[in-house]
């Protein structure tokens, strides 16, 4: 049970201080989640904190590899415009 940060991360630091499990760490080329520490905030918060503040759609995946914030879900930009 762990989330994953992928390459679209822009290194904004927003998630790092919110992680109760100290699973998120600064790395090159982008922040990473230590899968052995990540609890997905279960028991602490209703929603995983990193995925609740991350501004980049698609940058954080759930344990099955699906984007928690899919394209268009945060910015409201229609998906066809995002693709263009």
């Amino acid at each position: 049970m762990a989330l994953e940060i992928i390459e679209s991360c822009v290194n904004c630091y927003a998630c790092e201080p919110l992680c109760q499990s100290k699973a998120i760490y600064e790395a090159k080329p982008h922040f990473l989640i230590d899968a052995s520490k990540c609890t997905e905030c279960a028991g602490d918060f209703a929603d995983p904190q990193c995925a609740s503040i991350c501004p980049i759609e698609g940058a954080i995946l759930d344990e099955s590899g699906v984007a928690i914030n899919p394209p268009g879900s945060l910015t409201g930009i229609p998906v066809q415009k995002l693709a263009a």
Binding site: S8, V10, N11, C12, Y13, A14, I53, P55, I56, L74, T75, G76
Partner: peptide
């Protein structure tokens, strides 16, 4: 200060 706590429609964080 790279982190933000809101999204504005005139800003692109990428």
């Amino acid at each position: 200060a790279p982190a933000c706590n809101i999204q504005c429609n005139y800003c692109n964080r990428k």
